[in-house]
Structures are given as C-alpha cells and as structure tokens.
Design a protein around this nucleic acid. Structure first.
Lengths: 298, 298
DNA sequence: CGGATACTTGATGTCTCTCAACTAGTGTGG
DNA sequence: CCACACTAGTTGAGAGACATCAAGTATCCG
C-alpha cells in the first residue's frame, strides 16, 4: 500500500496504491484529477506512533490525508485533561482548512502512519479549475461533523456502559467498512483504555470496570489492543445506536434497521463477506498496515 | 431585514437586506453571484417558534440559511432524551448536504424564524460554474465542526458549573459578534433552562442549581430568557475557555489572550463599541429580530 | 529477563440525577 | 386591566453513577 512511486527517495505517494483514494479525498475523481492531486502532494510523510501529525497550536496550512495507520484528534483542556474528538482510520482527511489561522485541536498517531500532505495554498487555485474539489471537501468535513454530533449525543446523554459500547461498535463498523476483506469478529484496535476514557469522557479506571462488565456478560471483550465482539446483537442494543448513525458510519451504505447491523456482524463472524472477498491472507496486511504496534502478535 | 423583494406575494428574500449575507453563505461573493444565489432561493420560509425547520428523519435536500431568528439542532435518543448539538443565530447555514440521504439531526426554531432555502439539486451545477461556493460550504461546515468539537470537550471534560458558564459565554460572544451594535451586558437569550440542560448534558434541575450559584457569586444571571453578565472576567475564568476557541467563535477576529475577551465584554458594558456603532435605538430591533417571543417585554 | 507501560481491583467520596412538591412568571381571553 | 391556565423555574431529600486515591498484577518490548 502507498508504495512510493518510482524512486524510493522521491517523496510522492503513488495514488494508484493509496488506500485513501478508495473512499475519501480522491474517490470518484477522474484519473487525470487524481494525478493532479498527487502532483500537489507535498510528500508522503511518515509519522511514528505517539507523535503528533500536527499539534493543537500548529498553523492550519495543509491537508493531511491519512494513507496508512491510525490516528486521533484531540483537544487539551486547561486543567491538563484531554478530550479525544474522533479516531481516524486510513482514508480519513485530517487538517482540513478551518476558519481561523490555526487548528484548535491536534492530531496524534496511534500507530506508525503515512500521511499525504497537500498545502492549503494550492487548494484555492486547484478548486477554481476543478470545482468538484470544494464539494468533496465539504462532504468530508460534513462526515466529521456527523461523527462529532454522534459523539456529542453519546457523551451527553448515555451512561458509561452505553458510551463505551457505542465507541467499540463505531470503531468495529468503521473498520469493517474500511477493510471489507476482514471477516472476523476479532480485530486489532490500537487503543489503550485511557484512549477510550478520553474519547468517552470517562476515567480509564471506570472504563476498565465497564469493560469487565461487558466481558462478563458475554457482549464484547477488549484487552491489550484486541477487540472481540462476542454478541453483536447485545452490543448494538447496549450501544443504543440507531440505524441512521450506523448508516452514516458505513458511508453511503444505508442499512434497513438495527437488525441489519447485527446481520453484518454475523456475516463477519461466519466468514460470509458481502462483497467480493479478498484472499484470507490479505486481511492481515490490510488490517494491521504498517506499524510494529499494528501487528496481531509476535 | 429580509424584506421581500418587490411583491409581498413573491417569496424571494432580497439578499440586499439579508442579515445572513453579512457573515456567511454569500459573504464575499460578487454582487452577481449573490444575485444568482438569490435567484435559486426557493423561498423565504417563515417558521414559527417551536416548529421544526426540518425533522430528524427529513430528507436532506436543501440548504436552510437562517435569515432571522434563533434555532437549534438536536438529536433525539432512543430512550426519549434530547441532545442539543448547537444553537443557530441569524446567518448560520443549517441543513447542509450530508453524506447520507437524510440528516441524523433535526433543527427547531427557538423564535419565529425566516429561512432562505436553496435546494441541493442546484448546488452541483452552480458550484461547477462558481467554484468558490464549494469552498464556502466547506468553510461553513468546518465552523460547525469546530463548535461541535468545542462542545464535545466541554461536555466530556468539564463540571456542570463549567459547562453552563461555557455555554453562556459562547452564546454571549456569538451574539455580540452577530450584532456589533448591541452594547449592553444584558441580552435576550430565547432559551429555557431545559434547553441549557439538553445542550450541556445536564438535567434542567441541576442547571437551575448551577445558575443560582453563578448568580449568588455575582458572575452571571439567567432568568426567564434574559442573560446578564455580571462579571466577565470571572465568567471567562469559570468557563475555562482558551483564547483559540473564543477566537473561533468570533470568526476571523482572533483575540490576543483571555484578557481580551474580558476586555470585549467590558467595552460592551461601558458602551464603547469597537466598530462603527449603530444608533442605540437599532440594537433592539436587531437583537430581537422577529418573534413575539423575541420581544424584551410588553 | 527486566523495566516500562497498561491493566485491575478495592475503598471511599462527591457530583449529578431522580422524584416530588411548590412558586413565579407569561400570555390569553374576558 | 384582571383572572386564569400554563409553562418555566425553584427547592429539598435521597439514591446512584462515576471519580479519586492507592496498591497491586499482567503484558509488552527491548
């Protein structure tokens, strides 16, 4: 994935191999436009797990399209707390232009990452020639916003138990949408319980207790970066997720009702992928793309 | 404001009188483009206080630019709860295109409202001819997102006291940015304590207790839809707001530091407006634009 | 294998919710 | 201009969810 084009020293990411192009920034663009986007790519930067893609006070001057790896966006509070705003899977576009001169949030890599960087400066002229870019950006930010609204509702109106279930389900569904070839109910989730706490507005101690509960009840298990969905139906139930939100997560693939989500998960666990399945050997390399931390075990 | 152009029966809003054009959708557009936008306006719809501009399950097929009045976006949870996502002042654009076919949220009028409606169907072709529209939309949604991120952080990481102070401060600052002529520390805020609760993830009972506290401590007072900032500095302090967020609220008008916010508020209370002040008689009509509920008293 | 990180568990405290009754303010219709 | 009904706000008591503090154990990774 994201093989460097031509020479290794050359920093351009070859969009033909860019996972990000599957679903996000360049999706649906003509090959010509995709090529143009690639030519404006300032570099396929590698970011190590734990490092910031950009800090909370960094100027907002470029688009980061996450080609490979996991990341999250966060805000630091004045009293030393951290709120995780959302998690970013490959294909997600971070660091979109904002109103002010700087972001109010930062983005940090959870695993080693590769990001495709397009300076804002080229966006204006580029979108003049290719108007679809503006609308594409609007659509991407709109997805961010939907997710943010969803988290807001979860944190504001759900119990700890529901919030944690909600987050696990969200990440599981997004993962499956991202890697359709992955046909297992067990996945690598490069988070700590502290990340879950910071995303759900809880302490990691309490997250731990909630996870124990969910495990004891046979609903889901999360332990040292491995997530197992034990009972999809119950999980959907506890998460209190409505079908619309799930549909939004699945991006352009609306579901009929809640049962459908569970059905999807069942399909997953029973190895009956909906789309044309990838060879089973390939899920590993796609699910755990780049980092050492991304390895299932060793 | 928003006088119907030409005949009263004709539904078009004359953009020359549209407050919304001051800061949002059409801001910075050439007069020609503004005229084109106006010509695509499907009608200046009036919505009564308490009615939905669009419901949570309504198809997402048009842009609602709020010309006059207050509104809020919300999500209803499965267990009958409501989460208010954000409040919309005149100029805000609601109902932007989303990824899926329907919104996952609804929008409800707090006061009588006038909205300018532009069908999504015309956006594609229009943005082909006028590429700046796409980027403008992206920028507007990005502002939504910033606000959502901010609320997320407040709900996830602040105490009840801080959350309420934070919301009051946000609304106060946004109001002042909206109506620069308004030079008083007392304003009309068409909310109930229940709205505040639903926005901050608290019960209205607890909101009430927090408001009593803030009042007793001489920080702020909110009572029957009137907000009074008693001590701007303390309020900023309690809200735990950092300058970046405040700058984002003030849209394109970044502040130096926290003291600046307080300074702004002081200016407000002392009648020293920064910009070219409006005649003092005009603030009333601008602050309480349309509705009966919007009247200071009678 | 050893240090560092992540996870686990218990005891205790507190913030916020729930339930319930009551009061104040608003707006309508006479 | 007043009375009434309705909505919004107020207050108290008690319970529960979650945080905090503190000490331990498991897992990872070099």
């Amino acid at each position: 994935m994201a093989k460097p084009s031509k020479a290794d020293g050359k920093k351009h990411v070859d969009c033909r191999y860019c996972q990000a192009c599957g679903g996000e920034l360049c999706a649906g663009f003509t090959p010509e436009l995709a090529r143009i986007m690639a030519s404006h790519n300032a570099g396929g930067r590698k970011i190590k797990a734990g490092d910031d893609l950009f800090g909370p006070d960094a100027p907002s001057n470029a688009i980061f399209s996450l080609v490979d790896g996991w990341a999250f966006r966060y805000i630091l509070t004045e009293d030393g707390g951290r709120q995780i705003l959302d998690f970013a899977l490959p294909g997600v576009v971070l660091g979109l232009p904002v109103a002010g001169p700087a972001h109010t949030f930062g983005a940090q890599a959870l695993t080693d990452c590769i990001a495709c960087i397009i300076p804002h400066a080229v966006l204006g002229p580029l979108s003049q020639q290719h108007p679809e870019i503006g609308l594409r950006l609007a659509s991407l930010i709109s997805q961010d916003r939907s997710l943010a609204f969803d988290h807001l509702t979860s944190i504001g109106r759900q119990s700890a138990r529901e919030r944690v279930a909600h987050l696990l389900l969200e990440l599981f569904i997004r993962c499956r949408a991202q890697w359709p070839g992955c046909r297992t109910e067990e996945m690598h989730l490069p988070l700590t319980q502290e990340h879950i706490g910071d995303a759900t507005g809880l302490t990691f101690v309490h997250v731990n207790r909630v996870l124990r509960e969910l495990h004891q009840e046979g609903i889901a298990e999360f332990h040292y970066r491995r997530l197992r969905i034990l009972d999809p139906d119950k999980l959907v139930d506890v998460a209190g997720t409505n079908r619309d939100l799930a549909a939004a997560w699945l991006q352009e693939r609306p579901l009929g009702d809640k049962a459908c989500i569970a059905a999807q998960l069942h399909l997953a666990s029973h190895g009956m992928s909906a789309g044309p399945g990838l060879p089973s050997s390939s899920w590993k390399s796609r699910d755990m793309p780049v980092s050492g931390a991304g390895r299932p075990s060793r």
